Simulated scan of single mutants.
Amino acid sequence: MMLKVYLSGEIHTDWREQIVAGAAGLDVIFSGPVTDHAASDDCGAEILGAEDDKVWHDRKGAQINAIRTRKGIADADVVVVRFGDQYKQWNAAFDAGYAAALGKSLVILHGPDHGHALKEVDAAALAVASEPAQVVDVLRYVLTGKLP
């Protein structure tokens, strides 16, 4: 069995790299959003033309990024959504809801401080992890039936 896993959520820590490295040797294909913050923010204006109003600048970028996000989530077998501590990730919450609406297997990753705020998101997930290594353990178990 092979899994396609979309890694969504915060882009300010190395959680994606930890999961990819930990899953080495497993039959997993990872995808995710553009994690270059400047490229993600500015892609719309760079590709379609500058905007004087920051609202429209951001909207153009969000819409272009949504093409990649929708495709990645739609193609995924498992969607992992990470909520970090530093910022409110409304985009991550949106991705989790979109994945749940599509019936995707959803794994949520966040620290204990977000437990109450994310209770509805957590309730839609099939697993809620607090560390990237736990996500790897979930993937390993799903693919091999082996416990850590």
Rank of each mutant, 00 (worst) to 15 (best):
M2Q: 11
L3D: 03
L3E: 08
K4D: 09
K4H: 12
Y6E: 08
L7V: 03
S8K: 00
S8C: 14
E10A: 02
I11S: 02
H12Q: 09
H12T: 11
T13E: 09
W15Y: 12
W15A: 06
Q18R: 09
I19K: 01
A21N: 11
G22C: 06
G22K: 02
A23E: 04
A24H: 10
L26C: 08
D27N: 12
D27V: 02
S31V: 01
S31P: 04
S31N: 14
S31K: 04
P33D: 12
P33L: 11
P33M: 08
P33A: 15
V34N: 12
V34A: 07
T35H: 12
T35I: 14
A38F: 12
A38R: 13
A39R: 09
D41E: 14
D42F: 15
D42Q: 10
C43F: 05
C43D: 05
G44R: 06
A45P: 05
E46Y: 11
L48V: 07
G49T: 07
A50L: 14
E51T: 01
E51Y: 04
D52S: 13
D53Q: 10
D53Y: 09
V55Q: 13
W56G: 04
R59N: 10
R59E: 13
R59T: 14
R59Q: 11
R59C: 08
G61S: 15
A62G: 09
Q63W: 08
N65E: 13
N65G: 12
A66C: 07
A66W: 05
I67N: 11
R68H: 07
T69W: 04
R70P: 00
R70A: 12
R70S: 06
G72K: 03
G72P: 03
I73A: 02
I73L: 05
D75E: 13
A76Y: 02
A76W: 03
D77R: 05
V78Q: 01
V79G: 03
V81S: 01
R82G: 00
R82S: 11
F83E: 00
G84I: 01
Y87V: 00
Y87E: 00
Q89R: 06
A93V: 07
A93Q: 14
D95M: 04
A96V: 08
A96Q: 03
A96N: 02
A99Y: 02
A99K: 03
A100D: 08
K104P: 05
S105V: 12
L106G: 02
L106C: 07
I108K: 00
L109C: 04
L109S: 03
L109T: 01
H110G: 06
G111Y: 07
P112R: 14
P112Q: 10
D113G: 15
D113K: 15
H114K: 15
G115E: 14
H116N: 15
A117D: 05
A117M: 07
L118E: 02
L118I: 05
V121P: 00
V121H: 07
A125D: 03
L126K: 13
A127M: 10
V128Y: 02
V128G: 03
V128P: 01
S130E: 14
S130Q: 15
E131F: 11
E131M: 11
E131T: 14
Q134L: 13
V136E: 08
R140Y: 08
Y141M: 15
Y141I: 08
L143W: 08
L143D: 09
T144A: 12
G145I: 10
K146V: 15
K146N: 14
L147R: 13
L147V: 15
P148H: 12
P148D: 09
